[in-house]
Nucleic acid binder design. Structure first.
Lengths: 106, 106
DNA sequence: AATATAAGCAACTAATTGGTTGCACAAAAG
DNA sequence: CTTTTGTGCAACCAATTAGTTGCTTATATT
């Protein structure tokens, strides 16, 4: 099972779920009300999000509250870090041109 | 065609391509050498990356150099911004507990 | 104890995905 | 002008995905 964070956030419904529970932990039923699908479909998304540890469960009787696991979200941020220097540099465009020219000479 | 940035970076090969061309613009052939697949497969990935505007082409004779479009990468960063405040706050964990309790009372 | 509610799991299905091979076309090299 | 090289595109295929319906289990409610 290839459950990585990037594959998890690829689905728009899952991104919406993450946003919702970021504001407030919710049960599958409560979440399902926000979408045009069945509760089972939402449940499946939650399973995927749980498997890659983007969300955690808080059991409360027969209800299960899903909450965002912020730590895992940082993983995406960490990946972005590799590119961040590129857009923080105002010479970004120029760099690319120079690299292309250099490559041409070979 | 549902070509959004998140779906594009879901594939590990595409993420690797982005990293490679971030360092230096490259042709499909040059890129394919880095992977265990055919040139056509890489070409397909490049098409997807082009469609969602994560990469741009620089034509040079019959060669096509693909370079990273940093602007589009910022879109992911912008999405992350919605969550960033959560992990920048040291009270994050506590917040979630309080929100859950609040929800219980209803 | 009987019923209603919350949630997970399994089987099935349609659509999408990542890969392949084969072909077409344009530009460079002989 | 013919051949080689770089690339894109289409057709096909196996695997995965997102969704469905139906069932089971566990906790509340009456």
């Amino acid at each position: 099972m290839r459950r990585d964070v990037f594959q998890a956030i690829a689905d728009p419904t899952r991104r919406a779920i993450l946003l919702l529970i970021a504001a407030q932990a919710m049960t599958p039923n409560a979440l399902a009300e926000h979408f045009d699908t069945t509760r089972q479909a939402v449940s499946k998304h939650l399973r995927i999000l749980t498997e890659c540890e983007l969300v955690k469960q808080d059991h409360n009787g027969r209800e299960i509250y899903y909450r965002l696991e912020v730590t895992k979200m940082k993983e995406i941020d960490k990946w972005l870090d590799q590119f961040r220097k590129l857009w923080e540099s105002r010479f970004n465009e120029l760099d690319n041109v120079l690299l292309t020219i250099k490559n041409d000479k070979k």
